[in-house]
Simulated scan of single mutants.
Amino acid sequence: MAQFIDNEAETKAMSTVKHRVDAIRFAHLIADLPCPNQHSEVRLAVRRAKRRKSTRQQQVLGLTKELLDRMVVACPDTLSGRRDAALLSVGYDTLCRSGELVLLRIEHLSPCRTRLLIPRSKNDQFGEGRSAYLSDDTTAHLNEWLDASQITKGALFQGLHTRKLGERPLVTASVRRIVKRAAERAELTRPEVSALSGHSMRVGAAQDMFVAGFETLGIMQAGGWKSQNVLARYVEHASTHSMHLRRWKRLSEIHAEARMPAQSGLALQPRYGCER
């Protein structure tokens, strides 16, 4: 086991190594066998791998309100365009993961189409669900999609075949493609398009809420987070950027005040010993 971890760490990311170590642990537990993960050699091998590899995960680009509006406006007035606009807007308002978006059904939508039940998530394996509310703009985009598609039951967001409903729900890979395609239509830069993913709506909404001054508990409830550490990784770029903006603004004000002449109306008196 320790040798396996050393070999994997040479070519694999630390997150991949961790997933495989956890899988081995789970297999032993299911088989009612002694778990090797607690052995001292295995624990030392994991520590060696962490020192060799960075454990920091690369954060996707957050789809903030500014980017969202640009991408939604760029969606064409077609059946697929209306679906894409509705999916992007719903994903932003509900802070859903791509896996949660594809599980949404018409039955989860309230009669007035302003509230959604998220039936299941990664942190909710037993299906307790959580409620999410939609803005007026998102409800309008959703109404346009449902009226055009005539969906009355089944998956809320369905795939299209030859510009017609395929009667099958989207998969998570489809959500990622829709996000990137909408970004290309909005003429985002190539690095921005590459950094976007099906998770970007969730990240961007959390960053916007943090910058707007929402409390951590409120953001966690809105997105269904169980850990503050996970949320902190989502909003760290937004918080750091906001902090630097405030810093630069305050420093500019201080420098401006230092350059301003005295406003007392009295001429500055020369120092003693400096008169000529």
Rank of each mutant, 00 (worst) to 15 (best):
R83D: 08
S149E: 03
T240H: 02
P270W: 12
C112R: 12
S252Q: 13
L160R: 09
A9W: 04
L188E: 04
A212P: 01
R190Y: 00
Q38I: 00
S200Q: 01
R52Q: 13
R48L: 10
R202H: 03
A183D: 05
L79F: 01
D93V: 07
P111W: 09
K180Q: 11
P270K: 09
M243W: 05
S54Y: 02
A195Q: 04
A23G: 13
H241I: 01
P261I: 02
Q263Y: 05
A9N: 09
D93F: 14
D84F: 01
L156A: 01
M243F: 10
H199R: 07
T172Y: 01
A183Y: 00
A238V: 09
G62D: 03
L146W: 10
L29I: 10
G166Q: 11
S131Y: 13
A256P: 00
A45H: 05
L188Y: 04
L95S: 03
V73Q: 08
M1D: 02
F210Q: 11
I254N: 07
R51E: 15
W145P: 03
I178E: 05
A155Y: 01
E253M: 12
Q38Y: 05
R276G: 08
V203L: 07
G273P: 08
E100K: 05
A45L: 02
E144A: 15
K18D: 12
L33K: 15
A31C: 14
I178G: 02
T94N: 05
P191W: 05
R70Q: 13
L156Y: 02
G154S: 09
Q57L: 09
S131N: 11
S200I: 06
H39E: 11
R250A: 15
V46E: 01
T216W: 00
A23E: 14
E8S: 13
I24D: 04
R163I: 04
E128H: 15
V60W: 06
R181S: 11
R20L: 14
A212L: 05
T11S: 12
A222Q: 12
M71R: 08
G213W: 01
L61S: 09
T139A: 02
T94M: 02
S121A: 13
L88K: 04
A212I: 00
L160S: 06
V17S: 11
D137S: 13
C75F: 06
P261A: 10
I151P: 04
T152R: 14
P270I: 12
R105A: 04
A232H: 12
G204P: 08
G166H: 11
Q38R: 01
G223Y: 06
R276L: 07
K12D: 07
F4W: 04
E184R: 15
T162P: 00
L33G: 12
A256C: 00
E184D: 11
S149Q: 09
E8V: 14
S110V: 10
N37D: 04
T78F: 10
L63Y: 02
L231C: 12
E257Y: 05
I151C: 01
T189L: 05
R177G: 02
T189N: 07
L196M: 00
G166R: 12
S252G: 15
T240K: 03
H28Q: 15
A195P: 06
D22W: 15
K164G: 02
R185Y: 09
A232T: 06
L79A: 03
N229I: 08
E41F: 00
V46L: 07
I30Y: 07
L231T: 14
S98R: 03
W248F: 13
G273C: 09
